[in-house]
């Protein structure tokens, strides 16, 4: 799985940090998203998918591995 974040779109809601704190954080200066793990560990995949769908400003996109389905 590969995760992308678009800092220009992010509105700093913090939803991703609540949902998948191992993968997302917020910048100190302005609360904008930072990606902690571009290739998250398997145990975080469900949370990352949830973070993608609940990000209010569509700043998170997830690419699933073809092989893993």
């Amino acid at each position: 799985m590969q995760v992308h974040v678009d800092q220009d779109r992010c509105c700093g809601s913090g939803m991703c940090v609540l949902t998948a704190g191992a993968v997302f954080d917020q910048r100190d200066a302005d609360g904008i998203v930072v990606l902690l793990a571009e290739h998250p560990a398997k145990q975080d995949w469900d949370d990352v998918r949830e973070a993608e769908s609940s990000c209010p400003s569509q700043a998170i996109t997830v690419e699933e591995d073809q092989a893993a389905g």
Binding site: V17, D28, G31
Partner: peptide, 8 residues
């Protein structure tokens, strides 16, 4: 946004 971010 920095004033209301989770860690803050």
């Amino acid at each position: 946004t920095a004033d209301f971010m989770i860690r803050k």
